[in-house]
Every structure is written in C-alpha cells, then in structure tokens.
Amino acid sequence: MSGADAAALWLTVRLALVVTAILLALGTPLGWWLARTRSRARPFVEAVVALPLVLPPTVLGFYLLIGLGPASPIGGAWLELTGGTLTFSFTGLVLASVLYSLPFAVQPLQAAFEAVPEPLLEAAQSLRASPLDAFWSIAVPLSARGFLIAAVLSFAHTIGEFGVVLMVGGNIAGETRVVSIAIYEAVETLSYGDAHALSLILLSFSFAVLLCVALFRRRPARAV
C-alpha cells in the first residue's frame, strides 16, 4: 500500500471519529426530544432526520455544493470568518457527513430512549432530581446499548461514504481524499492492485462492525 493510500485511510478514520463525536452530541438531545415529545412537529422532524436514508447521495451532494459554496449565506459567512471555502475542505466533509449519517445516530438513540420506563423518571423527579440529573443517572445507563450502536453505525457509515464526498470534496490529498475516493480513482486508472488492497480493508472492517452490532443486539438485556 502506498503512502498516499495510508494517508487516505488515516484521513477517513479521523473524519469518522470527529463525525461520530458530533453525531452523539447532537443525536442525544434530538433523540430524547423525539422519544418524549407530544409535539405535532414530531413526524416532520422524524421524516427530515430519515431523509439521508432515502435520498441519493448525489442529491445531498448537489445541494451541499450550492449550499456550502462561497455564494451561499453559510459558505459566504464561513469564508468571511476563516478565509477558506467550506467545500473542498475537511470541515466541509465533516458537515456533509454529519447530515449524511444523522439517521444512523438518531434512530438507535430514539429507540433506546423510548424503552426507558416513564415511571422510573417520574420516581426520580418525585425524589427531587432535576430533569437533567434524571436523564444522566437513569436514561443514559439504561440506553448504553443504544449509544454504542449509534456510535458504531455513525462511524461505519461515515467510513463508507462516497457519493457526497465525490461531489463536494475535490479529491485533495490529506484534506478530502478519503478511502472510497482513493479506491474509485485506483479502479478508474486500472490500478487494480491498490484497489484490491484498500477494498479488502474496508470489506473486513465493515463485516467486523456489522458482526459486533448483530452480537450486541442479540444479547439479552441485563436486569436493572
């Protein structure tokens, strides 16, 4: 494996780690709200969260190319602040990946939070625990498996991202040239050796991840 391929692998892992951290931070309040709210907005928010599951990455990529571009309000403000463009940058990829993998974090968390028994939370509140306190000391430990699945799926899905990155990345080594792009380029230039090496790594990794998730889902819940 060449140095460029190793750099692409490392960049991909870095991207996936950052995206997973952000998704857990973002997905927890969002998943909690979706699990507990009686608001009429809930189905709309659920549908928006699930959109990346259905939309072709080209649609998301196309909108991001326009929405993050220097001519857009977001891309323009970013340019004012940092002097760089959002598209073709690592930050831009993080933003794109957070959107793209959002359902993979929110949905397992929401499912886990929905399974937290309401009486337990009410009991905590009657003992004068603040809602935040009740959340941390009851809901979070009970939802540990949901957090783990959300983290693993977000990480894995970001590693496997291709179409969106192809459209807004610009294939810059060390910045936006992730593994899937490197494989694509290797295939297009008939470098099947490189393509095989990287593909095998991704294949083994993806299988290992899915196996872990399957094993975790099977294990019976521990008694509380």
Partner: peptide, 19 residues
C-alpha cells in the same frame, strides 16, 4: 489551490456553482 473533478464535467460544475 487546485481542486480535482473526476472529469472535466465536474471541474466545470465546480466553477459553475461558484465553488
């Protein structure tokens, strides 16, 4: 400063969209 499109069509799109 270079950004690479996978083909000249994508290079064109990068400029056309103002990126």
């Amino acid at each position: 400063k270079l950004v690479l499109g996978e083909d000249v069509g994508q290079a064109f799109a990068f400029v056309r969209t103002g990126n």
